[in-house]
Design a protein around this nucleic acid. Sequence first.
DNA 1: TGGTTATGTGCAAACGATTGCACCAGCCAC
DNA 2: GTGGCTGGTGCAATCGTTTGCACATAACCA
Lengths: 363, 363
Amino acid sequence: MQKTSIKKRVTLKDVANAVGVHVSTVSRALDPRTRHLITPEVAEQILKASERLDYRQNAAAYSLKTNRTRTIGVVVPDITNPVFPPIIRGVEDALASRGYVAILGNTDGDMRRETGLVETFRSRGVDGLILASVEREDAAVSKLAAEGLPVITVNRRVDDSTVASVVNDEAEGIRRVLTHLVSLGHRRVANIAGPQSLSTGAARYAGFEKYRGPMGLADDPGLVVFANAFNEAEGERCVEELLASGAEFTAIVCSNDRLAVGAIAALSRHGRRCPEDVSVTGYNDMPMVERMQPPLTTIRIQSNKVGFEAGQLLVKMIERPPGEYEAEHIVLPIELIVRGSTRAIHAPNGQDGDTAKPRVRPL
Amino acid sequence: MQKTSIKKRVTLKDVANAVGVHVSTVSRALDPRTRHLITPEVAEQILKASERLDYRQNAAAYSLKTNRTRTIGVVVPDITNPVFPPIIRGVEDALASRGYVAILGNTDGDMRRETGLVETFRSRGVDGLILASVEREDAAVSKLAAEGLPVITVNRRVDDSTVASVVNDEAEGIRRVLTHLVSLGHRRVANIAGPQSLSTGAARYAGFEKYRGPMGLADDPGLVVFANAFNEAEGERCVEELLASGAEFTAIVCSNDRLAVGAIAALSRHGRRCPEDVSVTGYNDMPMVERMQPPLTTIRIQSNKVGFEAGQLLVKMIERPPGEYEAEHIVLPIELIVRGSTRAIHAPNGQDGDTAKPRVRPL
DNA sequence: TGGTTATGTGCAAACGATTGCACCAGCCAC
DNA sequence: GTGGCTGGTGCAATCGTTTGCACATAACCA
């Protein structure tokens, strides 16, 4: 009825028959951790035979018996957002080398979808979870971790420190940006802060508030405006708001690149050119921002490495006995990338030029 | 030893005990396709109880028994390439609504890694495969399909038409681009063609060759140069080659956006401005190209839909009896997006201006 | 009323692996 | 020479489902 080539899959039993031993012996010979129980010659025969017959373990049977799937769930807000693919790629690279695979889900920032996805993943018996979608307050996540399921948040973290995380050094990123702007002579620096329900938004804003005083920047509250989401439209809206308020500024620190992109667009619509009139900085160094006009000065995060570390750490958590309850928190260093969207302030009222060697790069 | 809250997972047996029936009855009541075998009242009790106890099917046991995993493998060259995330997203949206999930793998264009990934996926018993990484010649893929494993190629296709595919209307895309350029007065149009080992590269190049004569374009072979990969560096290299050859052209049709980005950079390095001196077109309309300077005129493909259709079609193939061997091929329409990188030719030798209403948009 | 036919449920055998335990050699030591 | 080890292998239970089959009970019709 079908093509004759319906090759049934080779099982342990087939290998056992071929060699003339019991399946349990084959099972032990094939697992490096139990191979020492078997006479070396027999083990070798088994290896050879399983190779020859092209045996591959039935993942379902393995899972059913051991309750482990070598599968982990990865939840992101939206894979279409350029920030996430490199992270996911890092995760997968880390997992692949250990024999794990990832299944992926998108939440679109909807917390109900997040819980739904986590449900689905648990039903499929994932060995662990990597969450890039969490908000700071997320009781559900804490509960998962408390129940003993290995969980890591990546890029973001929850306020509960019992949940392991791999993130970037946000405060340091903002510090570098501010140092850079100060060195260019800027003193009135505005901030388009990200959503404060997300740890990235909150940490970057906290960094801004922490450092701007000590660095000699104006700490006018009117210089800060909060975006409701990390996207271009909110960047534009925030600039409108800033301009409407009449605040004076020569630079804007944006909580991420997409806000910066929107900000520059809105500025130019209002006749304020970047970087001539206003310097703008981003955060993340996502793809293509170096090709924009002007190329964006930003903070480069090690997206790939963030994912890779998370993958590695998760596997470590999965494979060690569940005794050790200390949640690890990894913070990766960032890098300031200076491009065309920041420039030395043109002496405004004659009050400076002193501070900085203006590192302006030609177009 | 552990927290007391190690809640064992609820099984069919638990539900059966709670209701006072046999597990097989529960199994049947829970599956909509067999529910009619059960007395409605009993079925309802079972539904209620399974709800109350929060029963979730053990995916491993289900797979072991039925040999179906409700998992499909998705293979892409590199998720970090902005072309692929929307496609993947589309696939996942289609799958999620049917209870399937995707596991993902990256090949980095390496065919050996592709076969390795396919091996891994098969060992995990995927119900089907979606391949975005195929080259035109790929015997392995044909063999998979022939063996009865549902396989679809997406965005690209293999030359063997027995393998189902979902792609874009490449020839039409190129035709639109050429029509647009002709309407702007261009007659000497160069082509940076993509890798001819990929169906996209080949189909777009074929479109160029097919239409340029009939449209009255110069069909000088020196106007075509082949990129070895779809990336910015190759775009730059190809422009160098074009310039070095002394070819004359007023526009360049690039086989994809990344080639176009590289091309524009290389042109500007040689003092040729886009669009003033040379018009440039891309293909794909990937994220951010509208924010570039100049914003890129390009062909918009329905990435998300391509993925969605592929996901739907694959599930259809999986769930229908394996009798029907007709491989479907879906071709989706594209759209021309006119932006700033194309402009009417400035009357070169006084020989025209006749043809076109030059639809130049202000910066 | 008796024999057939539906109809609903239970039984038990798979699916393919892992793993505690039992067994049986052979070896050493007393 | 006997008792105790030890190292290698087989036995069989088990994980949680699905599903062909057997078996009741009820329903039907002549």
